[in-house]
């Protein structure tokens, strides 16, 4: 599906919001407002947006800890996401999840999971439940390149293939798992070839900086899954401009590599296209950028003015059922 003009503009705006959100998070982390681990999505934004256009709103999305961009693309309110970053009661997980554990059940955004590969079997289960009930949803499971080396990956793909589960497995190959390059960790560097071992159709090394290309491949994958043919595997080639998380000494890649990759920026590409196609002027793009800044500033204000969780929250939601007075 070719993106409409409105969709392109909307995508540009959302990608800009994601980028500004991430830049602000880095600042807040340096200032000590955000703690724990913080994995930024800068450079990978096109993938988040592609999932939005290739899927239905009621499809399932599940991902790892590098989850801010997807959460925003999925439509989770930016102010509640920022509140979660700050550990506030108004956060998407009431301040109990943090940066790595964002979710919104209503939007079928199932998290935000921080054990590498741990969410992949969950994706199989989500898809199983839908097919069990005869619903035609697709489950999109995103993962990093590093996650394709863990046992969870292989067990999950195998089960999904045996049971013909409607999952689109999408690898965001940003070339490194922390500091380890793909070729140093994976026996095959065309990661999608791993799917062939499970008899799964796959797209190898789709340009992850090209929104339209991503939408095309993901759509093909989603149609395949929705038609009941089983799982489909897509590998998107992308790059993260920032460190793995905050405080990454980045000894594993030369500075010039990062600088070169920044020239292949997904947001700049889309911006140039919008100008060439006369869909926007430079001024318009500047305005979009300013508006994104404004939205993030408001989100930060909301988050900062929100209360921290009450101490009593420590003990809520450990169990869904209340077990009365019994001491656990």
């Amino acid at each position: 599906m070719a993106l409409t003009d409105e969709q392109k503009l909307e995508a540009y705006k959302t990608m800009m919001v994601i980028r500004r959100f991430e830049e602000k998070c880095a600042e807040l982390y340096a200032a000590g407002d955000i703690g724990g681990f913080l994995h930024l999505y800068i450079g990978q934004e096109a993938i988040a947006l592609a999932t939005k256009y290739a899927l239905r709103d009621d499809d399932n999305v599940i991902t790892a800890y590098r989850d801010h961009g997807l959460a925003i693309a999925r439509g989770l309110p930016v102010k509640n996401l920022m509140a979660e970053m700050l550990g506030k009661a108004t956060g998407t997980s009431k301040g109990k999840g943090g940066s790595m554990h964002l979710a919104d059940k209503e939007k079928r955004f199932w998290g935000g999971w921080a054990i590498v590969g741990g969410h992949l079997p969950l994706a199989a289960g989500l898809a199983l439940a839908d097919t069990y009930r005869g619903e035609d949803r697709v489950t999109l499971a995103l993962m990093g390149d590093g996650a394709t080396n863990i046992g969870y990956f292989h067990e999950s793909l195998n089960m999904a293939a045996v049971w013909k589960l409607p999952v689109v497995w999408l690898v965001e190959n940003n070339q490194y798992g922390m500091g380890t390059a793909v070729i140093r960790a994976s026996a095959v560097s065309d990661i999608a070839k791993k799917a062939e071992a499970y008899g799964m159709p796959c797209c190898v090394q789709v340009d992850g900086m090209d929104l339209q290309a991503l939408v095309d491949y993901l759509e093909e994958a989603a149609i395949y899954a929705r038609e009941g043919k089983g799982s489909f595997f897509v590998e998107a080639l992308t790059y993260r401009y920032r460190g793995h998380s905050m405080g990454d000494p980045e000894r594993y890649r030369p500075v010039h590599e990062v600088e070169e990759k920044k020239l292949d920026d997904p947001i700049s590409h889309l911006g140039s296209h919008l100008i060439e196609a006369n869909l926007a002027t430079t001024d318009d793009l500047q305005k979009i950028s300013d508006e994104a800044d404004q939205e993030i500033a408001e989100a930060v204000e909301f988050a900062k003015n929100s209360p921290f969780p009450e101490p009593g929250e420590l003990y809520t939601d450990i169990y869904a059922d209340s077990m009365g007075e019994v001491s656990r």
């Binding site: 992949l120 079997p121 969950l122 289960g125 969870y152 999950s156």
Partner: peptide, 9 residues
């Protein structure tokens, strides 16, 4: 893991 996902759903 899949039982967990199915239960969540």
């Amino acid at each position: 893991g899949a039982a967990t996902g199915a239960a969540m759903n």
